[in-house]
């Protein structure tokens, strides 16, 4: 059994007439991958028991969806997708609010970039913001901002996920990133004014 690849084991699961017949193959898959799943869940929860609960739910979903696994895919990627989506759903269901902007001393609201109302202005603002992010932020700041604003991860989860030294690490990165973005926007605004003047 151990000599089979993950994908070969899944093929045998899919060929099993009933769940009981697939149990030996699922056991091997579980044995191979349970540590990585629960470790990833631990980054999300930061607590042992809830990480175990989350990982259990991930494996239940994966076992139940085993027949939908497509030939040619890689099992670890498929399992990661289930783990990631389930954990992010769990975070959203907790409805933990993103850190209020008032907590950050220098707010992008003051910069004017967020005052666009029309769709065109908003698209232009988005493209401008992308450029500023790309030009101004380092890798860690970009990851922190993405996890926090796109995936709606609380800052303590972001800190654990990125292995930042302490719980306030992510917040410090967000503050730093927003300052950089504000400065970059002001620089861009000045230069565009100068360009118009000439």
């Amino acid at each position: 059994m151990e000599r089979f690849t993950d994908e070969e084991l899944i093929e045998r699961c899919q060929a099993a007439a009933e769940p009981a017949a697939s149990e030996p193959f699922l056991n091997v898959l579980f044995q191979r991958h349970h540590a990585r799943v629960v470790s990833w869940c631990y980054h999300i929860t930061g607590e042992t028991n809830s990480a175990v609960d989350l990982a259990q739910e991930v494996f239940i979903k994966a076992f139940q969806a085993m027949r939908s696994f497509r030939r040619g895919s890689k099992f670890t990627t498929w399992l990661y997708s289930i783990t990631r989506n389930h954990c992010l759903d769990e975070l959203r269901s907790r409805r933990r609010q993103i850190q209020k902007l008032e907590d950050f001393p220098e707010d992008l609201q003051d910069g004017g970039i967020t005052s666009a109302d029309s769709a065109i202005e908003q698209r232009e603002s988005r493209e401008l913001m992308r450029k500023l992010i790309r030009d101004s932020l380092d890798d860690t700041e970009t990851k922190v901002m993405t996890l926090h604003y796109v995936h709606e991860m609380p800052l303590d989860v972001v800190s654990r996920m990125l292995g930042l030294p302490n719980d306030s690490g992510a917040k410090a990165y967000v503050v730093s990133a927003r300052r950089k973005l504000k400065r970059a926007y002001e620089t861009w605004k000045d230069s565009s004014k100068a360009a118009k003047a000439t």
Binding site: V37, A51, Q56, F63
Partner: peptide, 23 residues
Amino acid sequence: SQNASNAAEILATKRKEIFTRAF
């Protein structure tokens, strides 16, 4: 971390329960 390792050990004991809940 030790906590993540502990979580893995706990999860390993729940293999049968997971299968039963899945099916």
